[in-house]
Nucleic acid binder design. Structure first.
Length: 495
RNA sequence: GGACCAUUAGCUCAGCUGGCAGAGCAACUGACUCUUAAUCAGUGGGUCGAAGGUUCGAUUCCUUCAUGGUCUACCA
């Protein structure tokens, strides 16, 4: 307990806790119930006249967020999840002995108040307190009421304080929840079945990334936190499910940035008897639907840029996009050597003579095009070398039937016609293994059981992944992914 | 991983060229029966992120470390 009483404000509040305790007031009662949400009351009495008062008295409850004492009366506000209401209490109405207790309430305490409703001189609907109860004593000081809590580190480490102090933070997470509900509803309405596949994988597959390792004691086996659910969801397509999706966490043991958190939320979708073009339409519909349902508008402003989710979104092949946005023409007849020379000539220093044709195309795209794709844009026909789970384009096997969607220069989703040929898949895994042996820690691993699954036969299918956090960033105008994750990954503190 | 920036009261922030640590809000005491960033009078509150170094003297200059942020690299 001594450890908790770290400063004067805490000590003073603790003294009030003791005052209540000594006077028979329970600091943390178990049985408090309220009658209504504040917002509902404000709505209900919206038309209450200036001179009127309500007949009914209700118990409201919330955190005491401000108080203004005036000797024998006091004004203040309490806030619950739905909103804030002013209260007014008079010593001559509740009695001197009782008023004394009310004055001991600290800002931050959860309190319940019962009373009728009236309008003050300034027309604010106010609850006139007749009875009150302490619901939960708070002994920590609240952040400043005017500036809120700005210290970014404190905001993330003590998100609960951030939520108390900064109302827009609460709204962001309410919107996040709405977006996920909207997507879920939309998918369910389209007859996709929501499933859950393992978070702990014996082989981390389905993406190019380094995994987190953990250990199962009884099985005495290392397990990897999943980097993607992809290979499990496709096993379900083998098993006869035709339309499935999963919204859940992925874990990648990589750097942290404004766009990356080690655990992040993805939706993956698989649909049998469909291809990447169907996924393109689905993606467009999802973004369009979420945009429309959230605010009724298809226009959003993100970090000062107007973004329109009006259909159809722009579509171009990766090669076309390079010509359009980077002014670099890549002829179909060109080989890796030719493209390497062009890349070097255009000052792309990361270009390496050892890179394949597809890797070079992808590099040019990432270096010169990606950041220019502000409006929702589908980039399709990706190089085969960087897409080991994707079906080749029938017209040109150097490419695969794959697209990524970009908004504000960021990859928001990735989709392709799923490779269902077990022999081809095995060969691609072998190529990835070679890359691993060559030192690429992020190359895909061989998954024999997945190959076995494909040998049972999987219908042609389209698959799609959408980064939910990034989508939420877009719709909430949040600059950092940490603004849309309640408890982002941080270093532990030394204490 | 690399570069740069930040860290001062519970919160938001000042603090000049090195010379006794400051404000507003919050808190405490008192006054106040319609206030709302209430008002008025008064009071308390600091390991200046940590450890070293330079100096007569360090919040200030230097080094190392910690945490966070931005950019960058890897990635979605």
């Amino acid at each position: 307990m001594e450890k908790l009483l770290t400063n004067d404000i805490v000590k003073q509040k603790y003294a009030n806790y003791e005052f209540f305790k000594e006077n028979g007031v329970e600091n943390y009662p178990a049985d408090f119930k309220k009658d209504a949400m504040i917002e509902d009351v404000l709505k209900k009495y919206d038309s209450l006249g200036d001179e009127d008062k309500s007949e009914e008295q209700l118990w409201l409850a919330g955190r005491l967020v401000s108080k203004r004492g005036h000797g024998k009366t006091m004004f203040g506000h309490i806030e619950d999840f739905s909103g804030k209401i002013q209260f007014y209490i008079r010593k001559d109405e509740v009695g001197e002995d009782v008023f004394k207790f009310f004055k001991k309430f600290d800002i931050g305490d959860f309190i319940g108040v019962k009373g009728f409703f009236f309008r003050t001189k300034t027309k604010e609907l106010t609850i006139r307190v007749q009875e009150f109860k302490l619901v939960s004593k708070s002994i920590q000081p609240m952040p400043e009421k005017f500036h809120g809590l700005k210290d970014v580190e404190l905001r993330y480490r003590r998100r609960y304080v951030d939520l108390i102090a900064n109302p827009e933070v609460k709204n962001t997470f309410i919107t996040r929840s709405k977006i996920i509900s909207l997507i879920r509803e939309f998918m369910t309405k389209k007859d996709f079945l929501e499933v859950e596949t393992p978070m702990m994988h014996p082989i981390a597959g389905g993406a190019a990334a380094r995994p987190f390792v953990t250990h199962h004691n009884t099985l005495d086996m290392d397990l990897y936190l999943r980097i993607a659910p992809e290979l499990y969801l496709k096993r379900l397509i083998v098993g006869g499910f035709e339309k499935v999706f999963e919204i859940n966490r992925n874990f990648r043991n990589e750097g942290i940035s404004i766009k990356h958190n080690p655990e992040f939320t993805m939706m993956e979708v698989y649909q049998a008897y469909a291809d990447y073009k169907d996924m393109m339409e689905l993606t467009e519909d999802i973004f369009n639907h979420v945009a429309k349902e959230l605010t009724g508008s298809l226009e959003y402003e993100y970090q000062g840029e107007k973004i329109s989710f009006k259909k159809p979104f722009a579509r171009m092949t990766i090669v076309e996009s390079i010509e359009k946005h980077a002014g670099i023409k890549i002829g179909e007849e060109m080989d890796a050597e030719d493209i390497f020379e062009i890349a070097k000539g255009k000052g792309i220093d990361d270009a390496d003579r050892k890179m394949s044709r597809g890797e070079l195309i992808n590099l040019i795209f990432e270096e010169r095009v990606e950041e220019k794709l502000i409006q929702p844009t589908f980039i399709y026909k990706y190089p085969a070398e960087i897409s080991p789970l994707s079906k080749n384009s029938p017209e040109d096997p150097r490419y695969v039937d794959r697209f990524e969607i970009f908004v504000y220069g960021r990859e928001m989703g990735n989709a392709f016609s799923e490779l269902n040929d077990p022999f081809d898949q095995q060969e691609r895994f072998m190529n990835q293994i070679n890359k691993r042996d060559g030192g690429d820690e992020e190359a895909h691993r061989m998954d024999e059981d997945y190959i076995l699954a494909l040998q049972y036969g999987m219908p042609n299918a389209g698959g799609l992944g959408i980064g939910i956090d990034r989508m939420v960033m877009l719709f909430t105008d949040s600059p950092s992914i940490r603004d849309v994750i309640l408890f982002p990954t941080l270093r532990k503190t030394s204490e």
